[in-house]
Amino acid sequence: MSNYQLPITNYQLPITTMQCPNCGTKVTIGDRFCEECGTPLAVTIPNAGDRCEKCGAGVEAIDAEGYCSNCGFRREMQTCDRLEITIQSNLAGISDRGLRHQQNEDYLACAKVDGKNAYVLVVCDGVSSSQKPELAAKVAAEKASFALCAAIQKGAVKPQEAMKIAVGEALLSVCDIPYTNGGDTDPPSTTIVAAVVVDKMATIAWLGDSRAYWISPQGSQQLTKDDSWLYNIVSSGKMSEIEARKYPEAHAITRWLGVDIGDNWHPSIVHFDIPGSGYLLLCTDGMWHYAPDPSQIAHLVKEKSDKDAVEISRSLVEFARRKGGHDNITVALLSL
Rank of each mutant, 00 (worst) to 15 (best):
E311P: 01
T86C: 10
F272V: 08
T28D: 02
I233D: 00
P133Y: 10
L257K: 06
A64H: 01
D306G: 00
N232D: 15
I177A: 10
Q153W: 01
I297K: 04
E161V: 13
T224V: 04
I94F: 04
Q221E: 15
A144V: 05
Y4F: 15
A137M: 07
E134C: 06
M239N: 08
V157K: 08
T39W: 12
Q131M: 10
D106L: 10
L280H: 14
C37R: 06
E142R: 07
P178G: 14
V193Q: 06
G183L: 14
Y290G: 13
M1H: 12
V317Q: 02
S130N: 15
G56N: 11
T17N: 06
V193A: 06
C149H: 03
A212H: 14
A141V: 01
T190E: 11
V197I: 15
R211Y: 03
V43S: 04
E36L: 07
R32Y: 11
N90Q: 11
M287N: 11
I215D: 05
M287Y: 12
A205Q: 13
T16C: 11
H299I: 07
T224C: 10
T16Y: 09
K154Y: 15
R322K: 14
V259Q: 14
F272W: 10
Q296M: 13
V157G: 00
I45N: 15
D263A: 09
I253L: 13
D308H: 08
C37F: 00
A141C: 07
R51S: 07
S173N: 12
Q160I: 09
P46Q: 03
I253E: 14
E142A: 11
P14V: 05
P159M: 03
R245H: 09
M201E: 14
G93L: 02
V167T: 10
N104P: 03
V59Y: 06
I233K: 00
S236E: 06
D81G: 15
L83H: 04
D227Y: 01
G98Q: 12
A140R: 04
A141Y: 02
Q221R: 15
S235R: 02
N22G: 02
I215Q: 05
V310E: 00
R82I: 09
